[in-house]
Design a protein around this nucleic acid. Structure first.
Length: 392
DNA sequence: TCTGGGGTCCTAGGACCC
DNA sequence: TCTGGGGTCCTAGGACCC
């Protein structure tokens, strides 16, 4: 009977660490990547451990970060650079296993099951992998090793930064029960509040509850999740292949919008962003969703599913406007607009009806040409006059 | 402190069909 | 004339994660 070994690896304070790597003068200093303190409505994306000592953390408004850490080095993110390094790190991972499941730009699961013959015991492999990342990129990672993905993920989290933690087979339940409730990955603020309101304050409190109690209180899915998670069983959160797919863009405005013309101009901009990414990723979709966040942070969505795929950015824009008008309560200030195309399928093959729609075909050809121009020259920004006027 | 952007998944209700 | 139950698709909202 083969034993399973999953390694979860997470880059420490990734964006901030890359900045410290590329700019030696930032090392050992509080680096805060995200918006600038002067930017209205901006937040911290990642910060270095030096900044965390001041109480700064991800998702914190930058204004507050500046107050806590006046000497912080505030930087805008360089996503392109982070993706470059991410690719390099993931390539190293792939030298250790054919089964690397990348979860985001800075973390992955590596299935080490059956790699003992090649690399030796998994715990030694984990340390070798950490060392290779360090020598080849200059970055540190935290790693967790366990018999299932869920426990491996928790183990890497508690070993941060630059750590390694192994949970041996059979010790998963004791391991989970030894942790505070806020380490329960998958239960966020809201769920913790609900847990507390029912008298659950520790992992052990949840462990004492029966599965029927948990499913009655939290619903079938969340109840089962809680029951299994505190027992260190695999909760299937990471194992199933993603089946739905969507592409979206959103924009928070420094000041609330009420003017319909300006609002629709922003929708036009979002339509461009989303449509070009559909082209880039070679995707198709019939479902369009518009998101409106009002000044009081109340967020509503409207969506529509159409008989045919979104065919051009103009087509997407028209659909977005139609949905927006249906939902918007005129006069209310808008702080954020979002646009998504959902339930995507692969490939740009046209459906039957579109073969004879020459007007659309022509527009689509133009947009594809624009897209390939942008691909060749990244500095090129082709935008409709309406957007250009609005921006300058 | 006044709250980003890009995603995925779940729930519940309604429509519609068999 | 009243009405069961299952399956699927769609929609809106919400929770969570990085």
């Amino acid at each position: 009977m083969q034993r399973n070994f999953f390694l979860h690896v997470d880059l420490d304070a990734f964006f901030a660490s890359v900045e410290q790597l590329d700019n030696p003068e930032y090392r050992n200093k509080p680096v805060i990547v995200g918006g600038f303190p002067g930017d209205r409505r901006s937040v911290v994306s990642t910060c270095s451990y030096e900044a965390r000592r001041y109480g700064v953390h991800s998702a914190m408004p930058t204004v507050k970060a500046k107050k806590l850490c006046p000497n912080g080095i505030f930087l805008r993110g360089r996503m392109k650079r982070y993706h470059e390094i991410s690719y390099q790190v993931m390539s190293i991972f792939k030298d250790f296993s054919p089964d690397v499941q990348q979860m985001s730009v800075d973390e992955a699961f590596i299935d080490l099951t059956g790699t003992e013959k090649l690399f030796g015991p998994p715990e030694e492999t984990a340390l070798k992998l950490k060392e290779r990342v360090r020598t080849e990129t200059g970055l540190t990672v935290s790693a967790g090793l366990a018999a299932n993905r869920y426990v491996a993920k928790i183990a890497s989290g508690i070993s941060k930064p630059d750590g390694f933690f192994q949970v041996k087979e059979g010790e998963e339940e004791d391991f989970m029960l030894s942790l505070p409730l806020d380490k329960l990955w998958g239960a966020g603020t809201k769920t913790r509040q609900r847990l507390n309101s029912f008298g659950f304050f520790t992992m052990k409190d949840i462990h004492r509850a029966s599965i029927s109690t948990l499913t009655t209180l939290f619903g079938s899915h969340a109840g089962n999740f809680l029951y299994n998670a505190v027992r260190g069983k695999d909760v299937e959160t990471f194992s199933n292949e993603a089946k739905s797919h969507s592409i979206s863009a959103e924009q928070t405005f420094p000041f609330d919008l009420t003017d319909t013309y300006i609002i629709e101009t922003e929708l036009l901009e979002l339509s461009y962003d989303v449509f070009f990414r559909l082209l880039k990723e070679n995707c198709n979709g019939k479902t369009v969703q518009v998101k409106i966040r009002y000044e009081d942070f109340i967020t509503v969505t409207v969506s529509g599913t159409y008989p045919r795929n979104v065919s051009t950015s103009d087509d997407l824009f028209e659909k977005a406007c139609g949905l927006f008008r249906k939902k918007y309560e005129a006069g209310r200030g808008i702080r954020l607009l979002g646009l998504a195309v959902q339930n995507l399928s692969r490939g740009m093959e046209d459906s039957q009806g579109e073969l004879f729609d020459f007007g659309e075909e022509k527009k689509k050809a133009v947009e594809k040409a624009v897209y390939s121009m942008q691909k060749k020259d990244k500095s090129l920004h082709v935008r409709k006059a309406r957007n250009l006027i609005n921006k300058n």
